[in-house]
């Protein structure tokens, strides 16, 4: 499914950052995935496949799963429903469409390797 496209997109982005910093290697990639993306396992697999031959080859992929939280107008607060696709406030039962977290697909941080890239002056 689309995890391969996501992995490629992620790796391309990381590669660009590594290039801009003159690094040949990336050792860690930290990603935040909302629980609704349901891609954690799939992204691990596709990341490894898609990273071959790139600066991310061999990098560790850290995935931080972000739970679903919604804003309930009735209770006027941010609530955590019981399931990833349950949009009901756990306190009052009212359905809401105001998602606060849980849909993220975000590159949070990377760690660059210390193999010493070519001298680069990025500024």
């Amino acid at each position: 499914m689309h995890e391969l496209a996501l992995a490629r997109s992620l790796i391309e982005m990381v590669d660009d950052y590594a290039l801009a910093h003159g690094a040949r290697r990336v050792t860690r990639v930290h990603v935040r995935l909302g629980v609704q993306s349901a891609l954690t396992r799939a992204l691990h697999v596709s990341f490894r496949a898609a990273s071959r031959g790139t600066r991310c080859d061999g990098a560790t992929l850290d995935i931080e799963v972000i739970p679903l939280t919604v804003h309930c107008r009735l209770c006027d607060g941010v609530k955590t429903p019981s399931g990833p696709w349950n949009f009901r406030c756990p306190d009052c039962g009212r359905a809401t469409h105001e998602i606060v977290t849980g849909r993220e697909m975000q590159l949070a941080a990377i760690v660059l390797g210390n193999d010493g890239g070519a001298a680069t002056h990025p500024g």
Binding site: L6, S9, L10, E12, M13, Y17, H21, G22, A23, T27, V31, E104, M105, Q106, L107, A108, A109, I110, V111, L112, G113, N114, G116, G117, A118, A119, T120, H121, P122, G123
Partner: peptide, 27 residues
């Protein structure tokens, strides 16, 4: 930036954490 001068040197240790905060699908 990679340092005050923005310069990286071959062979130098440069394990660095870079915080990014960007959507994977931003492209």
């Amino acid at each position: 930036g990679t340092g005050p001068a923005g310069l990286t040197v071959p062979g130098f240790t440069q394990a660095r954490l870079i915080e990014i905060e960007q959507d994977i699908l931003s492209r």
